[in-house]
Simulated assay, not measured.
Amino acid sequence: MDFSLSEEQRMLQETVGKFVADRYSLDQRKGYMALAEGHDQGVASELTELGLNLVQIPEDQGGLGGDAFDAMVVGEALGPGLVLEPVMEVMTAVAALAGGRPDILEDSNSHTLGLYERGQRYALTAAGTQVEGGKITGAKTLVPNTAGATHALVSASEGGQLGLYRVAMSDEAVTLFNYPLQDGRPFADLQFDGAAAERIDGVGLAEIEAAVARLTIAECAVAVGAMQAALDMTKEYLSVRKQFGRPLAAFQELQFRLVDMNMEVQDARSMAIWAANQANLTTGEALLRAASMAKAKIGKAATYVAEDSIQLHGGMGMTLEYGIGAFAKYLITFNLLHGDVDYHMGRSMRLSA
């Protein structure tokens, strides 16, 4: 099978890459993180203008009709910027869970996802969030980028059946608890005390699990882009930093370490391509298994690259001022979101039995 990029995908890659180069240097990112919202609304608007939220929406619903390979191209191009906005969540999961509703699809950038609960680890069964009489009660954790959202798509149980509900963030019965993750991305917990909840027809546990699986595969591509950037930064550092009158890159042992890092990055990229192909071809348990296999492999590789890049930078790698730490924090955080390596290894084995 030919995995080379099409002309349209190359244009998409170049467009996103130029945006990251122009608007997401590490210094610019630090400035965005220091803002009250945890990101820059102007930059978020520029991302909206790029139309990335439309990539995986069918053409007959006003989108670009792209597939998982297109999402992979976008994700890997975004990786070097460690982008703070929830681009992949909107592109994959929100688009998949909108139930074909034009009012959500046309304004998907203004929607966030509330699918996880404290004490439930990575379960998506929404045991503690309930809907009765059109009112929702309970709490959600790890909700991305609520500063730019007008509505949340929230999983909850009603009459013993799991469903997805649209809740206005402006409802007085919704309380936000904002916080940054270790890598700086803005997240929040949501508390619902009888807020109005509108059910999204045709979305249950199977659809939610599939959407999160597709999101996981897309996030793997972002991690590959971040891993490549961390490797490139480490190569550059070893080329200019000298010891005993020679660049560190001239020492054979350090060359071996760079080769090992490069092998991890290339293996991860191959797995991301395979997973994107599976996302296009499979559904149900086969899709969940593909997502778990990809996350288990790429999550492990991400941790390896994060740790080795810090070690090869020596003491400089431990400073907040030097950029490699931002990549290490992102890669470690990536490994924990939507299921860590242990969780996904276990799920892939269960689904393979």
Rank of each mutant, 00 (worst) to 15 (best):
F256L: 00
G17Y: 00
G138V: 03
A296D: 02
I298R: 00
T112A: 12
D171H: 07
T92S: 14
L5G: 03
I200G: 00
Q56Y: 03
G194P: 03
M1G: 14
L97Y: 04
G66N: 06
N178P: 08
F3V: 14
L231V: 12
G204V: 10
L215S: 04
S239W: 05
G163F: 01
M263I: 14
T137R: 08
P144H: 10
A195E: 00
G100N: 10
S170V: 12
Q255W: 04
G138E: 04
A156K: 01
P58F: 10
L164E: 03
K329P: 02
T129P: 04
M1K: 10
H151M: 11
L153G: 00
G65H: 10
D2Y: 06
F327K: 04
A152Q: 04
G119K: 11
T303R: 13
E158H: 07
L78Y: 01
Y32I: 05
L82T: 05
Q161F: 09
D232N: 15
K135T: 07
G66A: 10
L26S: 09
A210W: 02
E285P: 03
L320V: 15
A302N: 05
G163A: 12
A230T: 07
L82M: 13
F69D: 07
T15K: 02
Q161L: 13
K140M: 08
V74M: 06
A196L: 11
A296H: 03
D201Q: 15
T216A: 10
A95C: 11
S157A: 10
A268H: 02
Q311A: 14
G62M: 08
Q56H: 08
G17D: 04
T112K: 06
E85K: 03
A291F: 03
M271Y: 04
A156V: 10
G75M: 02
A98T: 10
Q191E: 15
L162D: 06
A149I: 06
L50I: 10
Q278D: 11
D103M: 13
R29S: 00
T150D: 15
A353I: 14
V265A: 03
F69G: 07
A230G: 07
A279E: 01
V143T: 04
L205K: 11
L320Q: 15
M91S: 02
L113R: 07
F256S: 00
G128P: 04
V16D: 00
L205Q: 13
L215I: 08
Q266V: 12
H344Q: 11
A211E: 05
S292W: 05
H313A: 09
G325Q: 12
G194R: 06
Q266A: 11
G38R: 02
V131A: 05
E8S: 15
V224R: 02
G81H: 00
E209A: 13
G148F: 00
